[in-house]
Simulated assay, not measured.
Amino acid sequence: MFRFSHGPGRGCGPRGRGRPEMDVERFFEWVERLNEGGPGRGGGRRGRMFDGGELRLVLLKLIADEPRHGYDLIRAIEEMTGGAYAPSPGVVYPTLTLLGEMGHIEEQASEGAKKRYAATDAGRIHLTERAHEVEALIARLTAIGEHRNRSDHRPIRRAMGNLRFAVKSRMIDGLEGDTLHEIAAILDEAAQRIERL
């Protein structure tokens, strides 16, 4: 069982011989490799899913359906593909900036520090002009999700996706002091209970 690293002095080191300490980011990378059958199989979350302006069209379509934050968009694509693919923030946020510069989306007032985006009239017109391409892209993502969800491991992947999203969202908001240790303790307890099954 992996122990999550959450600071010195809190009993967070390895609990058994040969059991490495693992931080949250490395843990999720490990889970992603397991979901894809291990390294060296190609594809997966870190593979290239879109070419050219395809990601722009997908993000614009999702925003036109409903105003969203950046991480809402990442989560929406991840859910559509059944957890097989999630674009990184390093790809999504520059794409949102470009869509804004193109006049296809605009920021909306929202609570907190996260920016929420809505489609402009120009963005909706652009989607109409590219409707067949947009439909094909959404169908591709949905087909990936349907294929992946046929696996017997679907409930576990769904739960792992929820966990991954929840932890990463809190990490972006900033974690300090007691909250950091509480989250690490919850993860440790879950790992221990799974190991005892």
Rank of each mutant, 00 (worst) to 15 (best):
R3W: 07
S5K: 12
G7L: 06
G9E: 09
R15Y: 01
R17Y: 12
P20S: 07
M22R: 07
V24I: 13
F27R: 03
F28A: 13
F28M: 13
G38I: 12
G42H: 13
F50L: 00
D51H: 05
L55S: 00
L62N: 06
D65P: 04
P67F: 12
Y71S: 14
D72W: 11
D72E: 15
L73G: 11
A76H: 06
E78C: 06
E79S: 13
E79F: 12
E79M: 11
G82A: 11
V91F: 05
T95K: 01
E101Q: 15
M102F: 01
G103K: 07
G103M: 05
I105M: 10
E106P: 13
G112C: 09
K114C: 05
K114D: 12
K115G: 10
Y117W: 15
T120Y: 05
R124W: 02
I125R: 15
A131C: 03
L137R: 04
L137C: 02
R140A: 08
E146G: 05
E146F: 10
E146N: 12
R148F: 04
R150P: 08
G161S: 08
G161K: 05
N162T: 02
I172K: 15
E176T: 15
D178V: 15
E182T: 15
D188P: 03
I194S: 00
E195P: 02
